[in-house]
Design a protein around this nucleic acid. Structure first.
Lengths: 150, 150
DNA sequence: TAAGCTCGTTGTAGCATACAACTACATTTC
DNA sequence: GAAATGTAGTTGTATGCTACAACGAGCTTA
């Protein structure tokens, strides 16, 4: 554990490589896991649910997506009957998004199977390691929060 | 540090959410970082380089990609003059892929700017945290290695 | 009130991906 | 050693996710 600058570079490379590898695989894994509910839609739906309703612009900002992308995704979710749009009385431009009952349900079941997959995958990890890993990820993701979307 | 089952669930949820969030953002970040070299191409090129030559099938297996996807990506890399294909004398079906000089160079410069971005992003982390985080990611990614590609 | 901003939609285009069908080569089996 | 089966890679086709640009409608401010 000499802690040389070279170790740092090494760790940075590993982190970069492994995060990228994860991203590369995430899609196929997700697609295999829930062929029904598209990955992005799921993510957005989960976010809407967690926030107990939110606007499309919030989603775009949070995921660094173009508003047109979000617009289409939300349209898909609505078409699937998983999300409802409600007008915001205080601002006629915006729509407040809420999961429907079906949306909440779909989310719960997807969440469950997803959680099961993670549980299996991370079953051999100690709780401390899980906690620590989760903290690192949170810290990592919060760091670049302010980077401009375009 | 009570280590209840609920803590575990909580950590699992966070890991799931944060890894997904990362994946959601990876593309836009990468696109912003190197508009020239497409994300996937970069990843594959880096892999080819690391392995000092490999076959298309290896790439497909490692990244859980369909062989058709890899075929097209490699074709792109070849068109850009970053990769060369050499016949394998011991098996006429396969091609061994190698980075060209230009490929190595492109990789180095991309790697550099990328590393700089990571360095800035993770600048406040201690070496121990970096090392630990890298280990967790390695461990995470190696766990699901055997999952079937389709 | 006019200018400018924000929220969302739609048109268009590009990239990454999968699946299926196919060719060519290799391995196994009888 | 010929036939059946398997593997490497390509190409056709379709889909999903994304961005950018142009726009309409509603808010805000000067």
């Amino acid at each position: 554990m000499a802690d040389t600058p070279r170790d740092r570079e090494e760790s940075l490379d590993v982190i970069q490589r492994e995060l990228t590898a994860f991203a590369r695989r995430a899609r196929s894994t997700a697609a295999r896991l829930h062929p029904d509910l598209p990955l992005v839609s799921y993510t957005l739906l989960a976010h809407i649910d967690r926030r107990h309703g939110c606007r499309a612009a919030d989603l775009a900002a949070h995921y660094m997506l173009d508003k047109s992308t979000v617009s289409r995704q939300v349209a898909t979710l609505e078409k699937l009957g998983l999300v409802e749009r409600h007008p915001d009385p205080s601002d006629q431009r915006t729509q407040v998004l809420h999961p429907t009952a079906a949306g909440t349900e779909a989310l719960a079941s997807t969440q469950a199977s997803r959680r099961a997959a993670y549980r299996e995958r991370l079953g051999t990890w100690t709780s401390e390691d899980l906690e620590q890993f989760a903290q690192y990820l949170l810290r990592y993701n919060s760091t670049g929060e302010g980077s401009s979307p375009r």
